[in-house]
Design a protein around this nucleic acid. Structure first.
Lengths: 209, 209
DNA sequence: GGGATCTTGCACGCTGAAGTGCAAGATCTA
DNA sequence: TAGATCTTGCACTTCAGCGTGCAAGATCCC
């Protein structure tokens, strides 16, 4: 609520960020990583962590807030008029935040934080729901499953694919995108054709060699 | 290994089973349910549970063995020559074991028991892998994803759908079946048509009114 | 009924993780 | 460089969950 702080030393600022980053990677591996493990991952002592966060929960809450902001921003970036393309793009963009998504997914399933994450991710959820409705209205998405259910299904499958796939392996992002289009109702050939028409949705989002 | 026991009192036998059943339902809700919670769910004291199982791990192992046997038996039951139908039927049959599947899924993700569950479920896994290969050979399943990857994807999605769906809600089983066919590469209309041709795959497996 | 078998409550001990206080030392910043 | 700000190690408390010993009472089975 009050992001402004009285002037802090730069190493403190740095460490605060380092702890959050460490929490992302540690929790992505083990959703129940201890405070000690997180601190150590950040190269700091457990005691120091408590200088930055009141308790474990405060850390988690800040993590959620951070992640949600990223995701919701991404959701706003997607503007394609074609719901299929929009869904694919959303998936591709979120893929780049894989580690963050994994943590968010884990926390979203953790009884203790369901509420918080649900609330924070509401904008992203709304975007998905809107996409699904549009996709169905345009006759591009499946109609054998009611829109809210389908939206939820897509969320869950996305969660799973991100969480249970080695993000580093080549083609992993493609697999995620293709899977979501399939769940949305497209045949694999239709999805394939769609991606062929939109090469920007494939593989590396940066135009590296 | 030695299921035969010297004669045990019938209440003891009953309680042993009750504990296993309680473990299924308790762990389905909370994968980290305590021994105490499980015992209480069975209407027994924690102390009694330790009379039936050496420790928590022994309980879990017996649970895995039980569940795996059910699943593997189901996997053997499926004989349809059409891979699409076979996959759908497999999903439909497994759905009836939802609670057991949930536990197995949770345990399969738990670092401490991955190995055990993986081994126990190998037959089911092989069946899925074979189905996928056949489906691809017959040109019915997607070919944009390599067979082993697709098999894994189907497993993961199945896991998710079962775990994250209210098994009691009407049509939940249908949703699971349709989702898996989609992931296999079918368009939703193709899946719909397939299910229309095989009404026995839909809804209640028993022929109730 | 009576002996064997179970169940139960309670009191332990053990472990791991959370969170705190404090004083000494390291690091920034003005 | 000096004072403010951080970091750290260590000792401590709390708490929850696991696993055990034991004796008293309940239940079963012959």
């Amino acid at each position: 609520m009050t992001p402004s702080q009285e002037p802090r030393r730069k190493d403190a600022v740095h460490n605060h960020a380092a702890i959050l980053a460490a929490a992302v990677s540690a929790l992505a591996e083990d959703p129940y990583a201890s405070v000690d493990a997180i601190a150590r991952t950040a190269g700091l002592s457990r005691r120091t962590l408590y200088g930055h966060f009141d308790d474990r929960d405060a850390l988690i809450r800040e993590l959620i807030a951070n992640g949600a902001q990223r995701f919701n921003r991404i959701a706003e970036e997607v503007h394609d008029p074609d719901a299929r393309v929009a869904l694919a793009r959303l998936a591709a963009l979120l893929w780049r935040e894989a580690a963050h998504v994994q943590v968010a997914a884990a926390l979203a399933l953790d009884e203790a934080h369901v509420e918080g994450t649900a609330e924070a991710l509401a904008p992203l959820r709304r975007r998905v729901a809107a996409l699904v409705r549009q996709g169905q209205d345009d006759g591009q998405f499946r109609e054998d499953i009611a829109a809210p259910t389908l939206a939820r299904l897509i969320e869950e499958v996305a969660r799973t694919v991100v969480a249970r796939t080695d993000a580093a392996s080549p083609g992993a992002a493609d697999l995620a995108v293709r899977t979501l289009l399939s769940v949305a109702g497209l045949s694999w050939r239709a999805a394939d054709a769609l991606l062929a028409e939109h090469p920007d949705l494939l593989t590396s989002p940066e135009e590296s060699a």
